[in-house]
Every structure is written in structure tokens, then in C-alpha cells.
Design a binder for these strands. Sequence first.
RNA 1: GUGGCUGUAGCUCAGACGGAUAGAGCGGUUGCCUCCUAAGCAAUAGGCCGCAGGUUCGACUCCUGCCAGUCACACCA
Length: 551
Amino acid sequence: MDIKETLLKGIVAAVEQAVAEGVFPSDQCPEIILEVPPQKEFGDFATSFAMKAARAYKMNPRKIAEELASRLQGDWLEKTEIAGPGFINFYLKSDVIYDQLAAIIAAGSEYGNLNQENPPKIQVEYVSANPTGPLHVGHGRGAAAGSALVNLLRAAGYDVSSEYYINDAGNQIDNLAASVNARYLELLGKPTEFPENGYHGQDIVDTAKRIIKKSGDAYLKLEAAERLEVFKEVALQEKLAALKEDLAAFNVEHDVWFSERTLHPDAVKDACHFLQENGNVYEQDGALWLKSTAYGDDKDRVVIRDNGVPTYLAADIAYHRDKFVRGFDKVINIWGADHHGYICRVKAAVKALGYNPDDLEVMLLQMVSLYRNGELVKMSKRTGQSVTLAELIEEVGTDAARYFFIMRSLDSQLDFDLDLAKSKSNENPVYYIQYAHARICSIFRQAAESGLTMAARPKLELLTDESEITLIKKMAAYGEEIAYAASERAPHRIARYAHEIASDFHSFYNRCRIMGVDTDLAQARLALVGAVASVIRHSLGILGVSAPEKM
RNA sequence: GUGGCUGUAGCUCAGACGGAUAGAGCGGUUGCCUCCUAAGCAAUAGGCCGCAGGUUCGACUCCUGCCAGUCACACCA
């Protein structure tokens, strides 16, 4: 069992004993929280329990600490100290950490994967950009963060399904077809007015060119409406293929691609009927309205327009109903910050459908601002002037782009410095981590050459250097970090962790040598750095960043 | 106007249900390659944690108000 849990149980037992002896009052026991102290002189773990309990117990905190410490036992415990206003500091026996290291080594590449009994089913829907043009950098943040979150949740033992919602119904798709049509006519020398809400990107021109290359002017003979239908399908298939290609190049893969069209008309109608029967929609001015105000929205929202066409919300209601019908315990949507006003009505819809709105978690990504040469790069999807994800990957590479997107908390606006990300130098944090991994691989290559082998049972207790102890403790904390980061939905914590362990390793590397020291010590160190490499690989794997063996 | 997010070192940002001297990277200064990758290490300078109140033994963290930046407030998607 994890040493922290063991310690926690020991403390609980000590408190219970004190209560049984009448030293502590029987009720009002505050929660016991163990933390790693800010300084190593304060021990391996500490708790502020005594200070928290002081009020409830009406006792002096130092007295509480003494009573607790005197009842705490365990052969893994070196000593306890009471410090400051009433902190209890715990010092573990040194062999405890060697047991931990041995367990980490034994777990191998599985170390960092947590097991949960009856893991909750979680769905993560992310990117879901309209299939009307290439992905741009904003989608890139969603793609990186979403896939990292999926990896993180899986490592934490959840049963996760990732999904892309394809908005392949509605006006924007008609605009896509009309845009392709306009380019088609234009290229064939039959100038036409470009649709007002059309897409101006080069990709639309390219699609038109490919159509001409394949079929020439054959489609000119068709009625306009027929031609638009054909172009709609061609364009949609091309866009979807391009999206998948862009995402694949970015180490992003969705388990399910969900087409909005499949919701029309039946699922949308069913959902509306359902809401009608439980009285959550009403008709007014010829339209059908969701009573979202009953669930905290500012105003009611139209679901079916007066012309009989369902709104985007109608499809989303049907879609979210479908998600819950599929049996997910938690449904996570990753949206851009510009959609925040939409959350309330979807949650209202979820509640109106009879599900718990708290089971729908919407994570908002704040905006990305690109900087090049110190200047803001303006983005506009309409005019096709934006920097696309493909261009970003081309410019800075998948590893750097993913790391830059993930390393910041999702709810802080991101300034993405292109010049920094593409600089293949020490300014770039992703290389720092990868370099640590490459160095370890290099050590193993050298060891193999010089005949140094891994010991079956390395003498880990020889690892007594400060930097070695730091590394072991850092690795021992990885599981907890995974669990916490997953529960907080905070993949950036893993980026941080990876950087920290890389830093601990580089520090070790400069203090301790492996080749040329006593064989037992060398083998122990080899085992240590092997574990470090494994943990770095695991954490980079969550981030979707490669772990090169040479740099 | 209403709502969301943000405001911490020169710059970009971390900071676990309130706790012991507020952290990292970049940038600055100073050292370290006869030795496993110097894309590295070590040391050092740099902070009214936006402002003002409040709660508490204790507040960057919680509450209230204000200021600033940003995104959004459709029978568009």
C-alpha cells in the first residue's frame, strides 16, 4: 500500500485511540490532510490537523499534536516532530523509499496507470469544429488539451470514450456547398457572385479544382440545386478527411465521430416530444420554446423556428440526450470560451430531459493569441487569413505545439509565441524534458557497450545522494499527481510534473555518475534512471509528446 | 448593462478543501565540460500576490465592493 495511505490510517487510528481514552472529544473531528512540507527539514509529510482541531476541541494545538504523536506507531516511522504553531511533521525511515522505488521498478511501464474498481464511464467531446474549413490554432488548443485529458483520465483508471461532433447539418454546410459552387463556376469562367456568408479559404478553391480535374464541367448541366447537393457531399467528405488528417498529425484520435445529421429528423422530434410531454416546452409566435428560465437561464430559447426548422439547440438537446442514453456517468464538453453563454441553456435542457446537469461538465478554453515577431497575428476564419493547425505543426512541430497548448491552465488566455516555440534551443521547455529522456537512453547505450548489466536485485539502499532521494520521492508522488490532475481535469499539471522530474534528473546527472563507479552502486543507479525514463515516457505519453532516445 | 475567465518577479505563467521563508521557465549577473549528450548543472539579483474593506489564531487562497484586460449576451452554428 501507498505509504501516504499507511500514514493516514495510522493517524486516524491514533485519533480514534485518543477519543476512546477521552483525551479528544468524540465528535467534530476535522478532516486529516497530509501534505508534503515546503522544506525537507520539515520531514516527509506534515499535517495541520492540530491547528484545525484546536477550535473544535477547545484545546491548545501543540497539546493536540503531542497527544496525537504519542499514539502514532509504525515500523516505517522514524520520528515525529511538532513545529511552529502546531504542525506535526512525520519523518519516515529511509528504507521506506527504497521499497517504493522497488515497487516502481517492478511496475515498469505500467507505473502511473491507476486501477479503479467499477470505473465511471466518461465521455469527452472535443474539437468538434465545423467541417467547413481547416482547423486553426484555437482548435489546436482544444485538440491538444482534449486528447491530453482523455489520456490522463485513462491513466487514472476511468473508462473513457472520446468523441467528435460533426456539424454536418444546417446553414454552414449549405454555405460550404455554395462556396464550392461559386469557385467552381469561377474557375470555369462563369463568374458568379460569391455567397455572402461563404468561406473564402484556399481549401475551397482546391476542392473546386479537384472536382474539375475529376469531372470537368460535367456538373454545369445540372440544376443549381442538384449541383449544390453533389458539391455538399464532396466538400463534406473532403473536409472530414482533412480534419482527420490534421488531427492525426497532431497525435489526436477520436473514438467516435458523431454526425449531427443522424439526429435529424427522428431524434430531434423524439426529444421535442419528450420535452412536450413533461411540459418543458411551449408554443409561442409559431415557434417551439424551451422553458430554460425554469432552470436558471436568462430567457427561454427557441427550439423549433416558426418555419418549422429546428435550431442548433434542438440538435444539441437530442445529442446530449443520446449521450446520456448511451450510459455515460459524466459527459465532458470542451468548448471555446466564446461558447460560455451557451452552457446554461444546454444544462437546462439536460435537466429538462431528466438528467443531472452536474453530470455535464463544460470546460471552457480561453482564447489563443498568436504572436510572431512580437506582434499579434490576427485571426479570421471568414477571410481564411488565420494560421491553421497544419501550418502551426509545420512551423513548430507537433511536440512543441502540444506542449505549449497543454502547459498552461485551460482557463487562462494563452499567448502563443511562435518564435519561442520553434526555437530549437534551451528556451524551449519541451526539449528540456525530452533531453532528460534522451540522456538516460544514452546512459543505457553506454552501459551496454561497457558490459554493465541490470542487476536482478539492485542494491537500492546504496542510493543515498540527496538528488537520488529527491528523484525517488518525486516518482513516488506520481500516482497521486495523476489522480489529482484527473479529478481536477487539469492536464497542465502533468506538463508541470514532467518538467519537474526532468529537472530533478538533470540535477542528479550533474552530481552522480553511473559509469565508472562501484558496480553495485552503478547497477542501483541504472535501475533508478531506468525508472525515471519510464515515468518521463508515461507523462509525455499523456501529453501526446514523443520521448526521443537521441537528440 | 448582465455574465464567464483573467490580474502573482522585467516577460510568460504555476501555486491541493486557508497554514511554516510565495515558486518555475525565459531574460540579467557569476561560476562549471581531461568525466555517461553544456538542448545541462550550481549560485545570485528581482515580489505592497490589481486596489480597498471583511471573516480567521493565520488570507495569494474564502466573502463584499471597486479598477483593468478579454470573451460572450440571436428563431447563427
